[in-house]
Design a protein around this nucleic acid. Structure first.
Lengths: 240, 240
DNA sequence: ACATTATAATGGTTAAACCATTGATGTCAA
DNA sequence: TTGACATCAATGGTTTAACCATTATAATGT
């Protein structure tokens, strides 16, 4: 790594440093997993002080473009694209009361509906086999009854993630991961259900997976929305 | 503002500072628009050095929780919730090739469809009046013909934003703003169309707004998706 | 009354030192 | 040989104290 960076300028020096490193990362000039030079070395490259350089690193870390590890062999490592940021921002919107849980649940309904519809259009035989494997897992939880409700919810989420992957649009996957991350906390807190609800939800999944296998986009979409809305209803009831 | 903060601890001091200030902001303890104490004063409150404190401020700034202004009367001001972060993260996903423009366009299709459906269910008489006002604006662009295509696209976006607001779910508004911010750049670059396309899109809007006024959720949703897909098609053609 | 100029408050930057964590290496005893 | 422990060096984390740059406000002059 040599001559990639030029002398830092502009009003805010740290911003220029951020821009240069960010461009290098996003363009692939510095591959994922690679380590940036040590702080003291970067200071020389940018002709800046360590304090300023560290402010830049903090920003890049917050953008989750790099991850900083301590000690010998540590340093700033380039991270792969992920849903962390979207999830964190969502969490902040909820905490600041700009977005309520009902809003989040409604949004999820729309997204899961769209995703399931797309998945039904695009599912391959292999995709269906993978969904079936997950359904078997869900079936085992179902047999164990209500005491395995927690496990069932986890499998349920895995199914939704798998469907998002089948839909083939990584943006939907990122968004859905973020939604699950945030809504999951509240499901854990508020959701206590009986055997009836477990059966109900298992059948939901069954119908959705079948619709996807049959490339029945309309049914997959409609049932996914219904399934998600059910969860939202449980939560609403619990709050009363 | 006194005794809100306690001595900074933990492994990474700046992270503790971030957490304390972020909690104070999100809980509403420090209202939007208010100014945090000056850096040197905050240092005393947290019993930390200025360098460390500034790293914390950089993170909060990047989270777009605060905005820092220079000079006398400057300082760290608490910002209101907004779509900046989501938009920026989206931009990074696109730049890093984790998400393509086609993916973004497809995502937009789903979101606009859902939003328009909700808006049709919830539109008040006043909402419809506001949409009509925007349609009049669009009508003027239409009369000017193709030379006002740029203006038309801007009005088109305003209509979509208005519909999102009518839908009444701020999460959809945030997401849609982010999508528009990112997709707009490429529309500006790639989109050159004729009078036929202008008319086509004007009629799209007409039908969507009417469907919303009639509380015809299904039509509003379907037409919105079709309308958005048209834009995606223009772009695809231009790329060839 | 208005334009100009100083002042002071505030963020931006630098420098040099020291602390804390961590992986690698070497040492010694069982 | 092998395992436990000590040492070392690389790297990020923190502190201090100064100085620079920007800007709103107050003082000054015309």
């Amino acid at each position: 790594m040599k001559n990639i960076f030029h002398k830092a300028e502009q009003k805010r020096v740290y911003q220029d440093v951020v821009d240069q490193i960010q461009t290098a990362i996003l363009s692939g000039e510095i591959p994922k997993g690679n380590k940036l030079p040590a702080e003291r070395h970067l200071c020389e490259m940018f002709q800046t002080s360590r304090g300023t350089l560290r402010e830049a690193l903090r920003i890049l870390e917050q953008k989750s473009l790099i991850e900083i590890r301590l000690g010998a062999g540590g340093g700033a490592f380039v991270k792969d694209a992920n849903a962390e940021l979207i999830a964190e921002n969502l969490a902040m919107l909820i905490q600041s009361d700009a977005v309520s849980l009902e809003h989040l649940a409604e949004f999820r309904e729309g997204v899961e509906g769209a995703v399931s519809g797309l998945a039904a259009q695009r599912a391959s035989a292999l995709d269906c086999k993978e969904l079936e494997a997950l359904m078997e897992e869900a079936g085992k939880c179902r047999e164990q009854g209500i005491k395995e409700w927690g496990s069932f919810v986890r499998v349920d989420e895995k199914v939704h993630q798998a469907i998002a992957k089948i839909a083939g649009n990584p943006l939907y996957s990122f968004v859905l991961t973020s939604v699950h991350t945030n809504i999951g906390r509240y499901y854990d807190k508020f959701l206590f259900v009986g055997p009836h609800e477990l059966e109900e939800n298992y059948q939901d999944l069954r119908v959705i997976v079948d619709a996807i296998a049959n490339h029945d986009s309309e049914t997959a979409s409609r049932m996914a929305k219904k399934h998600v809305r059910r969860f939202a209803e449980y939560m609403k009831q619990k709050k009363r």
